[in-house]
C-alpha cells in the first residue's frame, strides 16, 4: 500500500515541471495505472488531490485510469491478460504476500511488477520468454498547463 508515496512523487514532479515552464497553474493531469501493479486508483486520486493543496496543481482536472496489462509469448505468439490469471496467481503466491501496517496483503508485483516473470508463464507453451504489452505500473500520461 504505497500509493501515497507514489502520489507524492507525482505531485512534486508535476509542480516542479510547471515551475520550470513558468506556468500559472496546471490545468489537467492524466495518470495511467497498469493493472499488473494492483494499485488502488481511488487512493491515488485522493492522495494527489490532498497533496496538491496550495500548489500549482490544486484545482486541476485529474484523471486516473486503469489499463489492463497484457502479455505476449515470444516463443508461441500467445497473448493473454493479467486479469485473466490474477486470481490463480493470488492463490499460488498467497504465502509470499507482503503485509502492511493497514492489514492489507499485497503480492510482490505491487512493489515490483517485473516479478511477474517469476510468478507466471505462457499459459500455452509454459515459456517464461514473454513480454509485457502496455502499461505495467504507473505513468504520467499527460499534463497541460496555463502559462
Amino acid at each position: 500500500m504505497h500509493e501515497w508515496s507514489l502520489a507524492q512523487a507525482i505531485v512534486e514532479s508535476v509542480v516542479e515541471a510547471a515551475n520550470n515552464k513558468k506556468a500559472k497553474r496546471v490545468k489537467t493531469l492524466e495518470v495511467e495505472v497498469g493493472s499488473l501493479a494492483m494499485l488502488d486508483k481511488d487512493i491515488i486520486l485522493e492522495a494527489i488531490k490532498t497533496l496538491s493543496e496550495s500548489t500549482k496543481l490544486e484545482g486541476a482536472e485529474i484523471k486516473i485510469y486503469e489499463e489492463e496489462t497484457k502479455f505476449r509469448c515470444k516463443k508461441c505468439g500467445k497473448t493473454w491478460s493479467f486479469n485473466e490469471e490474477k486470481e490463480e496467481i493470488e492463490k499460488r503466491w498467497e504465502d509470499s504476500k507482503i503485509k502492511d501496517e493497514y492489514g492489507t496483503d499485497d503480492l510482490p508485483i505491487h512493489y515490483f511488477p517485473e516479478l511477474i516473470f517469476t510468478m507466471t508463464s505462457c499459459p500455452s507453451c509454459k515459456s517464461k520468454d514473454f513480454e509485457i504489452i502496455g502499461s505495467r505500473e504507473i505513468t504520467i500520461k499527460s499534463v497541460t498547463i496555463e502559462v
Binding site: 504505497h2 509470499s96 507482503i98 492489507t104 499485497d106 517469476t118
Partner: peptide, 29 residues
C-alpha cells in the same frame, strides 16, 4: 513489511536487508 512510504527492509541483528530472494520462493527470476 509494507508501509505508507514503500517497503521496510528485513531488520535483523541491527542490520537492514533487502533481497528479491525474500519474494520469489526458489523460483527463477
Amino acid at each position: 513489511f509494507g508501509n505508507k512510504e514503500g517497503l521496510e527492509p528485513v531488520y535483523s541483528d541491527s542490520i537492514k536487508v533487502m533481497s528479491l530472494g525474500f519474494l520469489s520462493k526458489d523460483e527463477p527470476i
